[in-house]
Design a protein around this nucleic acid. Structure first.
Ligand SMILES: [Zn+2]
Length: 444
DNA sequence: TATGCCGGGCA
DNA sequence: TGCCCGGCATA
């Protein structure tokens, strides 16, 4: 599944991606993933200019983001920044959802220019809405890093959330995942509730931190945001867009799926994500989790809220866990058998390996003492000896610790009486051999 | 299949 | 306790 997820998405994405020429959308998705992979250093590959900007942002911090491309933004006055944000938001909204929603006047130009839009968006708006959540989200997705992306995702929501819906919005679909993540993080409940609704296909979700309200109409959601969250202010009018997301069935599904995954990711997942694909970003998160492979065995402690996801993760865990299990098993094994001395592996019970170890410790040593010569001298005594020794050995072995390990010694290479003398000369055999016991004359 | 032995039974 | 053998594991 997991694997599929990412790929599929990528596959699907292309269309979408292509559709929105804007770097934005493309960016949103990618950044997260990349960010994960290369935490800081990498400057993203330059392909999608804007997108990459996000990366730096994460690292730098909310305000900084702008920068990748242009430090200038950082310097800007808050107001200007806000303006930018608004602009960006407008553009995004227009692109993603409905051109009609708000006519972003010139936004378009601004948007297209990759550098600006990201920066603008992220800086101000973010802080308000979901500072904390984003972080949490990050955690889940795959690594702390993601969280940053999450924040970016925040923004992404604009583009991203998009609903696959019929036409235009397609591009947005990419972004949707982000939202899903955040949402999950912040409000897992809400998501659940929403999903059903989302099934519709075009649902607008309120992104306000504590609010998960879902409305079917953009107007309604805006109204909701404006009235309940923003209050009535000039900015509020425009920022509404920032606080709601459009969700499509697809988006929802994907989002839901991924959500679980994220938790597991943490350390390794990132790698996966990266490898998998840039676009994956969120979706990738899901997939990775799905793949689960690596994940985080030990650390995952925080799987976040993810009480649920954690368990699901077994996949990954399983692997990681497996490792631990292995050790455990091995240890147990040793305990069981080795207690005595020889490291001979438990398996011994069955066969060969044990030979050296235990033979040495127990029986063999004993026999070695009584030189062959003696044995030859007389069989009778030998018989007794054999019995005694045999008993002794058993006793020693048994009492001490290893009961089990009643392994059979592996057959020694040395020729025994039987072989040496053959059936014909059975008389020549040592008593033990005659009795079908361990040969004393030719001990291993 | 032959060999080596354990485990068990019998006297 | 001594002797023998069934049966298993291994080569
Ligand atoms: Zn012998």
């Amino acid at each position: 599944m997991a694997a599929m997820g990412p790929e599929d998405r990528t596959g699907t994405r292309p269309d979408r991606m292509a559709a929105p020429p804007l770097g934005q959308k493309a960016c949103t998705p990618t950044p997260p993933s990349t960010s994960h992979s290369s935490s800081t250093p990498d400057t993203p590959r330059e392909g999608p200019g804007p997108c990459w900007t996000n990366l730096p942002l994460q690292i730098l911090g909310p305000t900084m983001h702008l920068c990748t491309g242009e430090a200038a933004f950082s310097f800007r006055s808050p107001e200007s920044v806000e303006m930018d944000e608004i602009m960006a938001a407008m553009v995004l909204t227009s692109l993603s959802c409905s051109p009609g929603l708000q006519s972003p006047p010139q936004t378009d130009p601004g948007l297209q220019s990759p550098p600006q839009k990201d920066p603008g968006l992220q800086s101000p708006p973010q802080t308000d809405p979901e500072p904390a959540p984003s972080s949490s989200a990050d955690m889940e997705c795959g690594g702390g890093e993601l969280s940053d992306s999450g924040s970016s995702g925040y923004w992404s929501w604009d583009h991203g959330n998009v609903s696959p819906s019929p036409s235009p919005s397609i591009t947005e679909a990419d972004g949707s995942p982000d939202e899903g993540l955040q949402m999950d993080l912040d409000q897992g409940e809400e998501l659940n509730a929403k999903k059903p609704k989302s099934s519709f296909r075009g649902v607008y979700k309120c992104l306000w931190p504590s609010c998960g309200k879902v409305l079917t109409s953009s107007v309604g959601i805006k109204r909701h945001i404006r009235l309940l969250h923003l209050g009535s202010s000039d900015q509020s009018l425009r920022e509404e867009d920032f606080y709601y997301t459009r969700i499509c069935c697809d988006a929802v599904d994907s989002a839901s799926a991924p959500a679980p995954a994220p938790p597991p990711s943490q350390s390794r997942p990132q790698a996966l994500v990266q490898s998998s694909a840039p676009h994956l970003s969120w979706s990738s998160c899901g997939s990775p989790s799905g793949s689960g492979l690596q994940i985080p065995p030990t650390h995952r402690s925080r799987s976040n809220s993810s009480s649920g996801p954690g368990p699901s993760r077994p996949g990954p865990l399983s692997q990681s866990a497996p490792g631990s299990f292995w050790q455990i098993h091995s240890e147990h094994l040793y305990q069981a058998c080795s207690p005595v001395q020889v490291p001979v592996p438990v398996p011994v019970g069955s066969r060969s390996p044990s030979v050296h170890g235990w033979s040495v410790s127990t029986s063999v040593s004993c026999h070695s003492n009584p030189p062959v010569t003696k044995a030859r001298f007389r069989s009778v005594s030998v018989g007794e000896q054999w019995l005694q020794q045999n008993r002794l050995t058993t006793v020693n072995a048994a009492s001490p610790t290893r009961n089990h390990c009643s392994y059979r010694k592996a057959r020694g290479e040395a020729k025994k009486c039987r072989k040496v003398y053959g059936l014909e000369q059975k008389d020549q055999w040592c008593t033990a051999c005659r009795w079908k016991k361990a040969c004393q004359r030719f001990p291993d």
